[in-house]
Each structure stands twice: as structure tokens, then as C-alpha cells.
């Protein structure tokens, strides 16, 4: 069973990780819109390409990546906490899930 404190920390990781990512990305996108620097094809590669309005584009890309990484950060925290507390079953479960996600991501990126 998760303790109330663990639930709270995990919830805060989900909440603030995603809020920071989305907030930074949204503010940067609005800045790009206002300053007329929004690329016609705004893919993630375009966000990190050098050129005009690099800082805003970079923050848009980094914000979305932070949002995508947030569940993995939460899972990593759960796993590390389980290792520290000697809860081996949960630690193994978190490690297996982490490995499965990375494998799936690797397969997906190869297939892309």
C-alpha cells in the first residue's frame, strides 16, 4: 500500500512537472505568436534548430519534452524510494515498467 505521504509526493511530481512543462511551452508559444516568429512547420526538430527566436522555440520544445518525461520521473522516484525502503517487489515492478517503456520507445523510434 502507498502511504499518504508517498501519494502526496508522487502527485506533486505529476502536478508540478507537467505544469512547469506546459506553462513554459505555452508562454513561449504566445511570445512567438505575438512577435510573429512562429515557424510554418513547428516540429520538435524545428524547435531546436538554430536561427531567429531560438530561445522561445527551444523553450516550447523543452516544455513538451518535460511533460512527456513527467510520468517517467514519477516512476523513477517511486522505484528509488522502494529500493531505499527495501520494498523489493515494488522496486522490481518499477524497474520492469521503466525497461518496458524504454524498449517500446526504442522500437517505436526505430519504426518511425
Amino acid at each position: 500500500m502507498m502511504s499518504g505521504r508517498e501519494n502526496d509526493v508522487l502527485g506533486r511530481i505529476f502536478q508540478w512537472g507537467s505544469a512547469a512543462g506546459i506553462g513554459v511551452a505555452f508562454a513561449s508559444l504566445l511570445s512567438l505568436l505575438i512577435r510573429g516568429g512562429l515557424p510554418a512547420d513547428f516540429s520538435l526538430a524545428a524547435a531546436f534548430a538554430p536561427g531567429a527566436h531560438f530561445a522561445e522555440r527551444f523553450l516550447c520544445g523543452a516544455g513538451i519534452l518535460l511533460l512527456a518525461a513527467t510520468p517517467l520521473i514519477g516512476l523513477g522516484w517511486l522505484g528509488l524510494r522502494a529500493v531505499r525502503d527495501g520494498r523489493h517487489r515494488r522496486a522490481r515492478l518499477a524497474a520492469a515498467l521503466f525497461a518496458l517503456c524504454l524498449t517500446a520507445a526504442l522500437i517505436a523510434s526505430r519504426g518511425a
Binding site: 508559444l29 512562429l38 516540429s43 516550447c60 512527456a68 510520468p71 517517467l72 520507445a105
Partner: peptide, 16 residues
């Protein structure tokens, strides 16, 4: 996450 990585790899994710 894995499916999103595939879409990003193909350049299909429009940040705007």
C-alpha cells in the same frame, strides 16, 4: 510515451 516518440521521430508532432 512510446507512441509519442514514434510520432516525434516522424516529425508529425506540430508544437503550435
Amino acid at each position: 510515451i512510446p507512441a509519442l516518440i514514434a510520432y516525434i521521430g516522424r516529425g508529425d508532432l506540430d508544437l503550435a
